[in-house]
Amino acid sequence: MNDVLEALINVGVLASAIRIATPLLLAALGEMVTERAGILNLGIEGTITVSAFGSFVVADKADSLWLGVVSGVGAGILLSLLMAVLVSSIKVEQVVAGLALNLFGIGMAFYLFRAVYPQTGSEMPRSDTFDHAEIPLLSDIPAVGEVVFSQHWLTYAAIGCCPLLWWTLNRTQFGLELRSVGNNPAACDMRGINVTGMQYLALMFGGLMAGLAGAFLSVFLSGLFFVDVAAGRGWIALAIVIFGNWRIGRILAGSLFFGYLDAYQLSLQARGVDVPHQLLLALPFALTIAALVVNRRRSHEPLHLGVPYFRGER
């Protein structure tokens, strides 16, 4: 029992909660922007996998972590460009395009992985990983320093991205136009806003962020690539966007909360405490459904989400 309570506020658990939350936050922010432009991208899971592979293979073969991150992000943007062509230009059903992207992306990543690293024995290829970026002075603060100020640089970047993104979306002309595209594309079109172009940009931003999430999983956390590297994080990011009601502050809180639940159950498992940890893991998904129901009257869901826009049609 003591273990169960102690793990709740354990420094290691809190630090790993923030670490686990990072890819979720990155992918969720990207998906939120994409959805704000009216596109429901179900292909994040595949995008994360492809990017994790891209980062891993380049980091390993070119021996440069930074190049790894760049190519992971590039792969993510490429895949979401494909999504953009499908849903924004050709106007294929978005749900299906997203699922196709998952299948294609995960298959491709795994195929290339096996092509580059033929299966030999049980040893998995491993790349270098980034060191934690300990912030001078601040990381010396007891407890707080370890939890907050000894994370990866990408974690700081992800959190720093929140206010920036908020400002762009809510205080600039560009942000207003982007949000309008998701709410009323016909009106935007009439005002001379390039709806298709906006959706391309939003999807590419989503791909960039999912790409960073993928890079985080391979070249920051583990230095490994395997077919299930995304482990449902793309879908959890989707849940976080809804749980956070498309608002940045709540998405940040949601990511941290979901990350915390995961870190908590991991530490309980590691301590050998016999609790049904699966139920803790199921909580985010159940809460997301609950949030959908509870928030339905004050939902910030873009009005035109998932509906392809055809000029000249009502």
Binding site: L82, L86, I90, V92, E93, V96, A97, A100, L101, N102, L103, F104, G105, I106, G107, M108, F110, Y111, R114, A115, V227
Partner: peptide, 18 residues
């Protein structure tokens, strides 16, 4: 690698949709 089949399936779907 058998994963090639996933690629074939995904690509076919993308082209079917298109």
């Amino acid at each position: 690698p058998a994963a090639l089949v996933d690629v074939i399936q995904g690509l076919s779907l993308i082209f079917v949709l298109t």
